[in-house]
Design a protein around this nucleic acid. Structure first.
Lengths: 168, 168
DNA sequence: CAAATAAGTTAGTATCAACTAACAAAGAGA
DNA sequence: TCTCTTTGTTAGTTGATACTAACTTATTTG
């Protein structure tokens, strides 16, 4: 009588975060407990309980009282989709735009919930395109862009970074 | 006594949307009325009233009852910042990733509220870099990428697009 | 100008997702 | 096994933001 109220509407960003966290924890620790989710997402345990109820009603997770949280196949798939978006965004932000990893992560965490499938796909192709480039043309323009980021000039392309923190 | 409760916390996405709408309408129509905002954002007039109250308390807009809505200098600046993020996102999505303009607009509308300043700046530089490229190397890789998007192959670069929707 | 219509406001309600506080179950150590 | 601690749940509250319905002000038009 109660599971009758299956909510088929789109997931909110917040619920997506919970799904993602659960998937992440199961991957990392084999199991996901309320406490872990609570720590990871920086919310109180009671909020996690409420979220799990919500996700249960949508058949995205399975949870027996005082036990571990599991993903249903559908939940699993959704979590994977979200994580995929996260990953590609981080990749683009760090590798192309040279955003600091920490900020890239934060940006990705928020953008992953609003990016459309089309954009996700094209961005994926974009990164693929760059990665599979034949070595000779591959990094040319990207390197040039990085110079541009650093110097603001187009043709200063041979600069040596005297004290970068990477990549000599 | 009442304006005492100035809220200095960060604006929510929703409030940013209102600010942006007001700026847009003032640009387009010279004035912004509750009704216009309501139509533009697809919310009821009462919601607009509430939002305006909120923005007033933060000194971002000025509004006399039953009158037009104005932006304060601070509100104006914030609106411009948000619009700037929107614009650069649309530009990137359409010009680099070839996302359909409509979807690009939607994505930008949501992402503009979460993109960090750093990402905004780097993305701006990225577009700048591409646009100011000397003609010879400018579109080379971008063209190649577009081929790649269409054909999935790297070296099919000379295709003539007989009818855009291809990919038999 | 007065009645009709449009626009704006207010009050009260709903939903989402966080919180606190109080309570319940599990697990660990003596 | 009996406590103590940790973890999880429940109930009730809060804040943000949307809504509806009822009311008020402004504008238009006969």
């Amino acid at each position: 009588m109660s599971a009758r109220i299956k909510q088929n509407k789109k997931l909110s960003s917040n619920m997506e975060d919970y799904l993602e966290a659960i998937a992440y924890l199961r991957e990392k620790n084999k199991v996901a407990r309320v406490k872990d989710i609570s720590d990871l997402l920086q919310v109180k345990a009671s909020s996690v309980s409420a979220a799990i109820d919500n996700l249960s009603k949508r058949d995205l997770v399975v949870h027996e009282r005082y036990g571990y949280v599991q993903l249903t196949p559908v939940g699993e798939k959704m979590a994977r989709d979200i994580a995929g978006k996260h990953k590609i965004l981080v990749k683009f932000l760090t590798e192309i735009l040279s955003i600091d990893p920490e900020i890239a992560g934060e940006d990705a965490c928020k953008m992953e919930h609003s990016i459309s499938s089309q954009t996700f796909e094209k961005l994926t192709k974009f990164m693929e395109f760059i990665e599979t480039a034949p070595v000779k043309d591959k990094p040319e323009w990207l390197k040039a862009f990085n110079c541009y980021l650093k110097t603001g000039k187009r043709r200063a392309c041979k600069i040596k970074r005297t004290k970068p923190k990477t990549k000599t």
